[in-house]
Amino acid sequence: MPIDANGDLEVEGLSLRSLPKVSLHDHLDGGVRPATIIELADAAGIELPHTDATALGMWFRTQASAGSLVDYLKTFDVSLSVMQTAENLRRISREFVEDLVRDGVVYGEVRWAPELHLTSGLTLQQAVDAVQDGIDEAEDAAESRGKSIRVGQLLSAMRQTDRVREIAELAVANRDRGVVGFDTAGPEAGYPSSRYRETFEYLAQQMFPITVHAGEAAGPDSIRSALVDGRALRLGHGVRIAEDLEIVNRDGEEVQVRFGDLARWVRDREIPLELSPSSNLQTGAIAAWGSEFADHPFDLLYQLGFAVTVNVDNRTMSATSLTREMALLVDSFGYDLEDLESFQFNAAAGAFLPVEEREELVELIAEGFDE
């Protein structure tokens, strides 16, 4: 069955968009609507590559498909340029959650780096407050329309700056005001988690959840450092854990694999992999396996029992949605509803929520798929 113009697909008679979903790896500055960027840039006198929303959206996707994480990250200069005031942050956050609701997301974690939003005089705390205001407005509006969604903030520290500890303390200070976890982002190669071991120890002492971008632009050593030094409970992407697997025999659809110690640890401990298939293709994270969506090792990892989850990473840069990513996976690997439900269960189990709320989320997903 073909994927429609909105990225949707019917599986066993159900629209993928209608199914309840969990979004764990979704960047705020990577999900700004092109039309909003144009409007806010015009008001601020900021020059853009295009002033037509369709053309700007295509520019983001093309520029982000250069095949490297460094080039991919350059596109964020455009979206960040209109995210420097409390008013704009509040609006963009509100629209971000509205887009999650339209995508069928019932629980989401929005990650963003407060230190990148200070050029117009905001403090770190003011930036966090503005984002939370937008989230609250959108959640309330959704509830008034009979939609249920909950969104938590993940504060990302940029690895190439000297503010990692400061952002960690900011996250902990806001744990009762919408912030559910901490992340490190930015260039991965050359910035192992061991550089920030003391900060991660501080977060562990505070019993504060951590996810780390690892296994995207660097390989298994980066993942190992994220787990050992970074105390990561989840792996941001983590796709290159597949480099620690050796295929020793193929017989039709049957594949025999030899596990490295790291891959076995990640699999056996059910450490969630925040896989983002379209983004992983754009950044070259799956270059070792091929250059097409179907070359992504997602299915190999799933069949071997890893806790795979489906994510968008950056909706605007990849011109995608969670619905579209699921549709592409169905198209490439022939998944059915039971498979798609498993991915959502994995995400719910890895959510930075109290166990009672994770159990409620699992029940909500099960009910939605049963219907």
Score class of each variant (00 low, 15 high):
Phe208Tyr: 03
Arg197Phe: 08
Met207Val: 14
Gly219Arg: 14
Val212Gly: 02
Ile223Trp: 03
Phe208Gly: 13
Ala217Leu: 10
Tyr202Ser: 10
Val212His: 15
Phe200Arg: 08
Gln205Asp: 06
Ser225Glu: 11
Arg197Ile: 02
His213Gln: 05
Ser225Leu: 13
Thr199Trp: 07
Glu201Asp: 07
Asp221Ala: 11
Phe208Leu: 07
Asp221Pro: 00
Ala217Gln: 12
Ser222Asn: 12
Arg197Leu: 01
Ala214Phe: 15
Gln205Trp: 14
Ile210His: 03
His213Ile: 11
Ala204Pro: 11
Tyr196Phe: 15
Glu198Val: 00
Arg195Lys: 10
Phe208Arg: 01
Phe200His: 09
Ser225Tyr: 10
Glu198Phe: 05
Arg224Cys: 03
Glu198Ile: 03
Arg195Ala: 13
Phe208Met: 04
Ile223Asp: 01
Ser222Met: 11
Pro220Gly: 13
Ala217Tyr: 14
Thr211Val: 13
Met207Trp: 00
Gly215Phe: 02
Phe208Cys: 08
Arg197His: 08
Pro220Val: 13
Ala214Ser: 09
Gln206Arg: 14
His213Ser: 06
Glu216Asn: 14
Val212Gln: 15
Phe208Glu: 07
Tyr202Thr: 06
Arg197Pro: 05
Tyr196Thr: 07
Phe200Tyr: 15
Ala214Glu: 10
Ile223Val: 11
Ile223Gly: 09
Ala204Trp: 11
Met207His: 00
Met207Gly: 04
Arg197Met: 00
Phe200Lys: 01
Tyr202Lys: 05
Glu198Gly: 05
Gln205Lys: 02
Ser222Asp: 10
Ser222Cys: 09
Thr199Gln: 03
Gln206Glu: 13
Glu201Leu: 06
Leu203Pro: 06
Asp221Val: 00
Gln206Cys: 10
Thr199Ala: 02
Pro220Arg: 12
Ala204Asn: 09
Asp221Ile: 01
Ser225Ile: 10
Ile210Glu: 00
Ile210Tyr: 05
Gly215Met: 03
Gln206Met: 08
Arg197Thr: 08
Gly215Arg: 15
Gln205Pro: 04
Glu216Asp: 15
Phe200Cys: 10
Thr199Glu: 12
Gly219Lys: 13
Ala214Arg: 15
Glu201Arg: 08
Gln206Gly: 06
Met207Tyr: 04
Pro209Phe: 01
Glu198Tyr: 06
